[in-house]
């Protein structure tokens, strides 16, 4: 689909950054993702100035870690999200950030193209499924990711008991999985 083509184009742009330090490709990625990273950081509680600074660091990290990107494991959007999430913990929450060990490198030097396309398609379906969730469920998921509120704060604000919030988030996630099958 058109959307998957767009996602594969991002993959190619990350490769161009990795292989040729291609500034035009980087500018394309920057133009699309930086405003969304900044939005995510502001929704996560950063002031506009801090979010701006943090966004530039996230995009610089993308450049520096381009060699780590594997399109069979993550879509570019997922990968940039994890970089932004990590920066949020470093800067906004000022905590150390334990990370899992990397998987040992497999024998294949270059990721398989068909696997990469498959993963980009799945992520695209996930995005579409998220967009079609009932408004209330989608909002709960968003708020859980922004961390703007803890589950118990959402409970206090919506007047729903904690168990209900948890089961609605769960329901939304089940629906997402189902929509992707």
């Amino acid at each position: 689909t058109e959307q998957t083509t767009k996602r594969m184009a991002w993959v190619v742009q990350v490769y161009a950054v990795r292989d040729n330090q291609d500034r035009a490709a980087f500018a394309e990625l920057f133009g699309y993702f930086a405003p969304r990273v900044k939005s995510f950081l502001m929704k996560s509680g950063a002031s506009p100035d801090l979010a701006e600074e943090c966004t530039q660091e996230v995009m610089a990290t993308l450049w520096n870690k381009a060699h780590m990107f594997d399109p069979t494991k993550a879509s570019v959007s997922t990968w940039i999200f994890t970089i932004a999430r990590n920066r949020k913990i470093d800067i906004l929450r000022k905590q150390r950030r334990p990370e899992p060990e990397d998987l040992p490198w497999g024998p294949e030097a270059e990721p398989d193209q068909a696997d990469a396309i498959g993963l980009q398609q799945e992520t695209e379906q996930l995005g579409q499924a998220l967009a079609t969730l009932p408004e209330e469920q989608r909002k709960l998921i968003e708020r859980a990711y922004f961390g703007e509120l803890t589950h118990s704060q959402i409970a206090a604000e919506t007047g729903l008991p904690l168990g209900t919030i948890k089961s609605r988030i769960r329901l939304a996630l089940d629906r997402l999985r189902h929509a992707m099958k």
Partner: peptide
């Protein structure tokens, strides 16, 4: 993490400097 990525993609973009 993929869900998080799509949540981020879905936020209204904010102008950068």
């Amino acid at each position: 993490e993929a869900v998080g990525g799509e949540v981020m993609m879905d936020t209204a973009p904010v102008d950068v400097a």
